[in-house]
Nucleic acid binder design. Sequence first.
DNA 1: GAGCACTGC
Length: 809
Amino acid sequence: MPEKVRTVFADSDDEKVAKTKVLPQPTEEPERKKKRNKKRKLDEPEVSNPADQDVPKEIAVPVKEVEKAVPVPKKRAETVSQTNGAPSSKSYPKSKSRPFTDTKTNFTPLREKAKALLETRRKLPVFENADLIRDLLRAQDVMLLVGETGSGKSTQIPQFLVDEFWCRPVPTQITRDGKTEKKMVGGCIAITQPRRVAAISLARRVAEEMGTPLGSHSPASKVGYSVRFDTSTSPSTRVKFLTEGMLLQEMLHDPNLTKYSAIVVDEVHERGINVDLTLGFLRNLVSGKKEGRGGVPLKVIVMSATADMESLTDFFQQGLKQPEAQQKAIESAEADADKMDTSSPKDISVCRIKGRQFAVKTIYSPAPVHDFVDAALKIIFQIHQKEPMPGDILVFLTGQETVEALEHLVNEYAMSMDPSLPKILVLPLFAALPQAAQQRVFAPAPPRTRKVVLSTNIAETSVTVSGVRHVIDCGKAKVKQFRTRLGLDSLLVKPISKSAAIQRKGRAGREAPGQCFRLYTEKDYLALDETNTPEILRCDLSQALLNMKARGVDDIVGFPFLTRPPREALEKALLQLLNINALEDDGKISAVGLHIAKLPLTPTLGRVLLAAAENGHECLLDVIDIISCLSVENIFLNTTSEEKKEAAEAARRDLYRREGDHLTMLMTVRVYAAEQADRKAWAERHLVSHRAMQSVMDVRKQLRTQCRQAKLLTNEALNNTSLHDPSPILILQSFLAGFATNTARLVPDGSYRTIVGNQTVAIHPSSVLYGKKLEAIMYNEFVFTNRSYARGVSAVQMDWVGEALAGKD
DNA sequence: GAGCACTGC
C-alpha cells in the first residue's frame, strides 16, 4: 500500500476526524458542488461540532448493530414530523441543518422500517458470510462471488462493505502530465445491473434496509441510482446502483473511477456486451499501477448466479500476474514510483453462497417433441387436472406468435373443461405487450382460478411472476445473431443453454417446491451448451470498439476480452468505423469519432446526426426526431383484430409519407409533440405505442440537449416553435452519410438487391413502402427471420447513393 | 404480410 494512503487510514481511526473532514468531498460533480457550497455557508457553525453529527456516526456502526445504533432524539423527531413530506428541493432549514443532515425528512419511520427489515435480512443465506466477505476483501482487491438467486447478494454485499475502512474517501495527490493535483479518491460503492428496473428497485430496497431516504429525495440520502433518463443521487450517496451502460459512460469521463472504492459487477452470467467491456476495463484498473487513483486500490467484486467462475478467475489472475518487470518499466518514469505498492496480495478469493430455492422436480419428455405448442397444451391440462391449488403455471415459449397460438388453444380447451375443475386464466407475456396487459400477470389469481402465464424469455430474467409452481420449458428461444460476413442480424429459434434451462426451472421453486416439464429429452438437455453465447460474439462490435478507442484503447487486439471475438468481426467493425470517418487511417479515433462516442447512439446513427448538423438547424432537428424513433422499439403497435386494423390504417393515413418510414416517423413525432390535450388518447387512436413515444421524447430531449452543448444547435433554433417544411432530400442524404452501405436497388425481376454485396432483400411488411417498387431504397436494419428483410425503409435516388459511397473512399 | 430480451452523460 502506498505510504500516503496508509497514513490517512491511520488517521481515520479517529472516526470523527476522518468522517467530518473527508466524507463530503469525493463523489461530487461540479454542478452539485455549486449547490452544496451555497448550503454549506448556512451550515458552517455546526460543522465544527462533530459530536453532533448523527449521520456520520451511523456510518461507523457495524451492520449487525444497526438496530441499536440509530437512536433518534425525540425532540428532533417531533420537529421533523411537522415538515414530513415536504419536497426536498425546497430550501433547507437555516439554523439547525448540517452537511448531509436533512431535517426536512422524517427519518424516524425510515429507521423503524430498517429495524424491522433487519430480521428478514438476517435470514438471507448471504448474511452469515458477511464477516468472511469483509475479511477477504480487506486482504484482496478482487473477489468472485457465486450466489444463486434468492441469496440476497445484490442487496446485502454493498451494505456489508460500505462501512469498511477501505471504503472511505482518501485525500491523494495525482500527478498527470507533470501536474500534481489534490483529489479525494473513493468513498462510494457502485453496483452494476444489466437492467434499469433492477437498478432502481434494488436501490429502493437497500435504502429501506439502511433506513435512509432514496437518492435525490434528501441530501442525506446514502443510497442512489443512476440509469439513463433517471439519475437519483445525493451529495452523500455512498451506495449507487447503476446500469452497466451508465458505468461505461462514467468511465468515459473518469477512466479511473475516482469516486469509487469498490465496483460490484452483478449478474455477470448474463454476459451482455456491456458487462464484458466493464470487466475488461476493470481488469486493467486493478492490475495497473493505479497512479490515476493516487495509488488507492479499487476493489472489484464480480457476482454471478452460475458457478462458471474458472474463466473469470483466470481472467483476473492473468491481469494481476502480468510480469512485474513490465510494470516497473512503465513506472520508472514516475517520480513517486517507489512508493507504489507492488507486494499487496494478488490472490483472488472465490466465495460461494447457497441460494434459497425450493426443490424443483424435473420431468423430461420421453421422446423428442415436434410441436411444442401442442405438447405444452397437453401438459397444461394434465397439471390442471392432477395438481392441487394453488399453483400457477409458467410456460416458456419462443415468441409472440407461439404465445398467441397457445393462448387461443388453451382458451378453446378450457371452454369444454369439466365445470367442477377450477378455472383457468391465460395470460400472455412478451415485451411488445402494452404495459397494462403485462401488469395482469403480477396480480394474484382470482379465487378458484389457476393462472397460466405464456411467456417469452422475458420471464427468464427480467420479470418475476409470483405464485408459479409449475414450469413448462420448450427448450428454445429466439436469438439475435449478427452475421459479420453478410452484415445482417438474424433472429432465429435456437436451443437454449443449460444455464438458461436451469434458470427457467428455478422459476418454479421460488415460493414452494415445484416441478418443471422439459419439452425435450434428457439426452437433448445434456447436449445443450453450458452457458448462453456471450453477446460480444453475437453482435455488431462497432459501438464497443468505438467506446474502447474513445478511452484510449488503441490496441484492440491487446484488450483483455473475457471472450475474444473472432478477428473477422473485429476487423469488420473497424472497417465500418473507418467508413464513417470515426477513425483516422492509422486506426486512432478521429474528432468525429470522439464526438460520436459521446452520443447515446450507434456509431452509424451518430454519424447521421453529425452529417445532419452540416445541413442546417432545421435538418438537424428533423433528423433528431427520426433518430429518436429509430433508437426505440417499434412505435407503431401491432394490430390484432381486422376492424382495429382498418381503423388504425385510416387514422394513421395522415402520418404516412410516400418518401418512406423515416419521414413517416418525423410526421408522427411532430404530430405527437404538438398534441397538447391528451397524448395518450392520441396514441391509442392512431395505434401508436404511447410507451414507445414517451421514450422517443426522452431520447429526443437528450439528443437536443447534447447538440446544444456541442454547439450544433442554438437556443434560438431549439426555442423556435414554428414548424418548417421538412426537406426530405437533405434528411435522407444525411442518413446516407451513415447508411450508404444499407442500400438496395430494384432489379428487372422486381426484387431488390443490395448495392454492396448484391444480396436479395425484401421490404419488411411493417414498412409504409411495403410492396412498392422504387429505383433504390435505404434501410435502417437488415434482418433475417423467415427471409431477408429491410426494416426502416425510405426511397432514395441512385445518384445520392453513388455520391455517398464515393465519399467513403 | 411480420415483431426474443436488454441497454446509453
